[in-house]
Nucleic acid binder design. Structure first.
Length: 502
RNA sequence: GCCCCCAUCGUCUAGAGGCCUAGGACACCACCCUUUCAAGGUGGCGACAGGGAUUCGAAUUCCCUUGGGGGCACCA
């Protein structure tokens, strides 16, 4: 059937939607990669299908220890739960490709037996020389098919040699391979432009092409949502499905996420690992919202969508096709929005670890949760990340403020007058019966007028004295949280600093 | 080099032939609020890559050019 946008969407009522996220454990999951996971998850949850996690550990040389754990952590952090896969199992396991080797080998053999594939004895060195030669002649780098039509005798002779063969797919020399992509529509590739790609490596491990086709088939994957970089490989997969007489899944190629220089997002562009954003103090809900909007949109105005709303509204039809640049500024804004939406209790819980880790070591640990709870309302709307709480609130914790005495200078006011203002403020504060924001304002605001100062001038002076900085949360609330003793002490220190100034 | 994909403000995007004088958001600028910084409010700046064609009418359809991206491994 055709939907209202004209794209073909095949509704499969009797078979449930089964999608998968299939990362390879080569390091920390990339945000672009996790966006793919998110889209798969959103689609599965939207239609009530299954979200499967499969680990594509078929490259022994690139495997990084701990990477699987990092992948699981990233998914869990974002709240993307999987129905089948590591730790939860499922009816179509195992979900680690390294545990399915016999399966790939069996089908590679079947393809050889049926004439769809062949063993290739060319050494890596020979292939490298071949490619170098092709580059020199400005030809497209591609396997020259030397082993494609070996006679039985030649093959036996080579098999006796030292080179362990790889299995290559016998790509049709003619014709086109056409497939339908749910976001791109029909895409046509000329078979002649494809080469005889490797299915099985000499170490017995499959390449991505073979493994993903075999697994997607046996795991009954209905839709393959993956990044655009895979589009060019899709005809190979189609050819494989054909050779194996299997029905291919629906293909859905997602727009890529690019760095600020429009190149594929990489380490050069700053933080790319999902866990890195967690460490920097981004909220998972902000991350999910932000990532969802990279390549997908609800309408012409909605920017804020929580997890539930995303699940409810997510649709393949609204996936875009243009690559998106990862806009850190917008993420920061969005994170601020979510931070402001948190209850104080929740905010304290989330911020505490960042304060514990970021505050100077002279500050006594553990931090008082009650004290932090008083501070949070004052910095909540100023935070863009949890980590920023440290710089925003450190003066609440540090006893000896380190600031330049020149900050105590008030424009057009002599230090003499400033000093008197400080003394008068100190005296009034000391005499206060209740040390609260309202009371403080009640005695200090009139003081400004009495001394012939503008409120801004007096408050600015006090702000520096009390916080050591010119930009801080509202003065009276801040003083109230700091407490009388600390405020009085800081005023004394300011007085001393000011004397040295003149 | 070859193959494929893509093309609206700086960025993320809305737009499915007349609702477009092209809408929203981030960023930026101004103003308001205000004890500073934020937050919030109001306003502003700012785009259909170019050229043809189809049509009464094109950001929207088609073609070409240009630009950008991706792929062309015993990596995924």
């Amino acid at each position: 059937m055709a939907n209202s946008r004209g794209r073909k969407v095949f509704m499969n009522m009797e078979e449930t939607v089964r999608v998968r996220y299939a990362p390879s454990p080569t390091g920390e999951p990339h945000v672009g990669n996790i966006r793919t996971a998110l889209f798969n998850w959103l689609y599965a949850r939207h239609v009530g299908g299954k979200f499967i996690l499969r680990i594509e550990d078929t490259d022994v040389t690139r495997e990084v220890k701990g990477a699987v754990g990092a992948i699981l952590d990233s998914l869990r952090w974002l709240g993307l739960d999987w129905d089948e896969g590591p730790e939860v199992g499922g009816p179509y396991g195992p979900y680690f490709q390294s545990q399915r080797l016999e399966l790939y080998q069996a089908f590679a053999q079947q393809l050889v037996d049926e004439g769809y594939a062949y063993p290739c004895y060319c050494s890596p060195q020979r292939l490298e020389e071949m490619r170098a030669e092709q580059r020199r002649r400005r030809e497209p780098p591609r396997y020259d098919r030397r082993c494609r039509n070996l006679s039985l005798k030649e093959r036996e002779a080579l098999a006796a040699g030292v080179e362990k063969p790889v299995i290559r797919f016998k790509t049709p020399l003619e014709g086109d391979t056409i497939f339908h992509d749910l976001v791109h529509g029909d895409v046509t590739f000329t078979n002649a432009a494809l080469d005889d790609f490797i299915l099985l490596k000499s170490d017995g491990y499959p390449t991505y092409h073979l493994a993903n086709v075999v697994d997607d088939h046996f795991m009954k994957i209905s839709h393959v949502l993956r990044a655009d970089e895979w589009l060019a490989s899709t005809p190979r997969h189609c050819l494989l499905y054909q050779a194996l007489s299997w029905d291919p899944p629906q293909f859905v190629h997602l727009p890529m996420i690019l760095g600020s220089d429009r190149a594929k997002l990489s380490k050069r562009h700053g933080a790319t690992a999902t866990t890195e954003y967690k460490k920097q103090g981004y909220l998972p809900q902000a991350m999910v919202n932000f990532l969802a909007l990279l390549g997908w949109s609800l309408d012409d105005k909605t920017e804020l969508l929580d997890r539930k709303e995303l699940v409810r509204h997510f649709s393949l039809e609204r996936i875009g096709k243009t690559a998106a640049i990862f806009n850190l500024e917008k993420l920061r804004w969005l994170n601020g929005v979510y931070l402001r939406g948190l209850s104080i209790e929740e905010l304290v819980k989330r911020t505490l670890p960042f304060l514990e880790a970021g505050l100077p070591s002279i500050v006594a640990r553990p931090l008082s949760k009650g004290y932090v709870s008083q501070i949070m309302p004052l910095i909540q709307e100023r935070m863009r990340t949890l980590a920023e709480a440290v710089e925003l609130a450190d003066f609440f914790f540090i006893d000896e403020l380190d600031y330049d005495a020149s900050l105590l200078k008030v424009k057009n006011i002599s230090t003499d007058v400033s000093g008197q203002a400080l003394i008068a403020s100190r005296d009034r504060i000391a005499a206060l019966s209740t040390f609260a924001a309202g009371a403080l304002e009640g005695v200090l605001r009139p003081l400004a007028g009495e001394m012939g100062l503008k409120t801004g001038q007096l408050f600015g002076l006090l702000r520096v004295a009390v916080t050591g900085r010119t930009a801080a949360p509202p003065l009276f609330e801040t003083m109230a949280v700091l407490g009388r003793e600390r405020c009085l002490k800081r005023l004394e220190v300011a007085l001393t600093k000011m004397e040295n100034l003149s």
